[in-house]
């Protein structure tokens, strides 16, 4: 199972890298979103996928449970999903606003913040 999941994670990474190469900002956004999901799946996989019982301790049980699933990766993924969702929402609005006010979704044409050509003076130091 872990083997197939690893292959899947690799494929999603490849797809997101391909998307992020694009000049179009919207593809960039999709690439970043895909990357976030690939990472979540990766954390899930490295937590070891087993067919064990859920990590819930019975009411009158005292001692160490064995053969339970690892609950930590799920907690990590949950945190990462929430954070990723917030950032994705922000980036989506940001790209939309940038598209609206800059009039382009081509990242090559987004050059307002870059320096313009200035005329050199003969008195410049």
């Amino acid at each position: 199972m872990e083997f197939y999941l690893t292959i899947l994670v690799g494929l999603i990474f490849a797809a997101s890298t391909y998307m992020m190469q694009s000049r179009s900002v919207i593809r960039l956004v999709l690439g970043v979103a895909l990357l976030g999901n690939a990472v979540n799946l990766l954390i899930f996989t490295v937590g070891r996928v087993t067919r064990d019982i859920p990590p819930i301790i019975p009411a009158d049980f005292h001692g160490t449970l064995t053969g339970i699933a690892n609950p930590l990766p799920q907690a990590l993924i949950l945190t990462a999903i929430v954070i990723g969702f917030a950032l994705f929402a922000f980036v989506l609005v940001l790209t939309y606003r940038a598209y609206e006010s800059l009039g382009t979704d081509n990242s090559d044409e987004m050059r307002i913040a870059e320096p313009k050509k200035t005329q050199a003076s003969k008195l410049t130091y």
Binding site: A98, S101, M110
Partner: peptide, 8 residues
């Protein structure tokens, strides 16, 4: 405009 450009 310039802020949005930098922020992207």
């Amino acid at each position: 405009k310039i802020q949005l450009d930098g922020a992207v």
